[in-house]
Computed example of a mutant assay.
Amino acid sequence: MRGVVMYGPGDVRVEEREDPRIIEPTDAIVRLTATCICGSDLWPYRGVEPVDHTLMGHEYLGVVEEVGSEVSTVKAGDFVVGSFVISDNTCEICRAGFQSKCVHAEFVHGGIGTQAELARIPHADGTLVATPGQPDEDLIPSLLAASDVLGTGWFAADAAQAGPGKTVAVVGDGAVGLMAILAAKQLGAERIIAMSRHPERQKLARYYGATDIVEERGEAGVAKVKELTGGLGAHSVVEAVGTRESFMQAVGATRGGGHLGYVGVNYDVQIPGIELFFAGIHTLGGPAPVRRYLPELIQLIWDRTIDPGKVFDLTLPLSEAAAGYAAMDERRATKVLLTL
């Protein structure tokens, strides 16, 4: 099969790899219908995260080809969407809703890699969710988004306790930030402030439910959010970038007693503890437990209640994955879908 391998920073190749096979009785083999490039894939691409002949990709959907003898919730022929973190969905931590911290948690990239034609998915019963039937082609982008970017944005909005009567501010206008706006809207937020400087992303933010746009950043951005909220700050804030500036902007934009959901992957970011201490806010974040939300998100997409697939603004064949990485790195694309 063909798959994407990152040899080193900026060095992305599509090459022939051995077809995966069932190893454990809890495994499933999925023939992928589509995959995509995640913003977090840019960390190794830029040399921030170590990379050396790494199998890339962790967002995926497709048709089950084969299952191990202990798999019972999906079968060959099922169309499935999977989480970007492997989980058994039965351990004590999973039952508490934090499948990304499952006792068997394993990130799909690296050892598995789903920017490929086939993938072996461990703990298939706990990781994969079958769709109600074979989806129409127009649903593929949206269902693919549920595998990570939509689920991550949803977790961020949920962690920030977005809901009726709440004002939500979203720091970051990338794919996850846009999905957090969609989630905040679906969760019933009264007002949604998108912090964005990019006209095209602002349009999509408004499409997904943003009521206000703030172009200022840093302290100026915080001041603008407070101006829009009577000097108090937002009830709920999402941090979807992963830099010190974005995190402190999110902290400053959150009112006392408010909630901050942070999902931006950060490296070497130092947060001043004294500022966080005196902010007097609730914080929750980290790798999103996408599996918690998958059944609900799949149904919302299936019913055409939400359309997260619009977040993909560039589609390329798998063979042109390197061009997709370059486009996202250079901010010529928000999120790239790879066809198979």
Rank of each mutant, 00 (worst) to 15 (best):
L42H: 06
P289H: 12
E65N: 12
Q249R: 08
Y7V: 12
D313R: 02
G111N: 15
C102H: 00
G77T: 01
V176C: 02
A183N: 03
L204C: 03
P20M: 14
A169K: 04
R206N: 01
K226H: 15
V336T: 09
A189S: 15
V251S: 00
D52I: 00
I93E: 05
Q299A: 07
R332L: 12
I192T: 07
A175N: 09
I193A: 02
G273P: 09
A145Q: 08
Q99A: 07
G252N: 11
K226Y: 13
V265G: 06
K185I: 00
S196T: 15
E59Q: 04
G177C: 11
H53S: 12
E106P: 00
T33G: 01
A28I: 01
P132E: 15
A205M: 02
G82Y: 11
G280M: 10
E117S: 03
I23H: 12
Q115F: 03
L228P: 09
V64G: 06
L297E: 03
E216I: 02
A157G: 11
V129I: 15
G221T: 08
Q299S: 10
R95D: 00
R197M: 11
L337I: 02
V63Y: 09
K310Q: 14
F312M: 01
N266F: 14
Q186C: 07
L55P: 01
A130V: 04
R197L: 10
G218W: 14
A240W: 04
I301C: 02
C94W: 06
G242S: 05
I213C: 11
M248S: 03
I281R: 02
V80H: 06
T73Y: 09
Y262A: 08
D88I: 00
V4F: 10
A253D: 01
L297M: 14
P308D: 05
A124G: 07
G285A: 05
A194H: 02
L340M: 12
G209K: 08
I121A: 08
P164V: 07
S246W: 07
G151I: 00
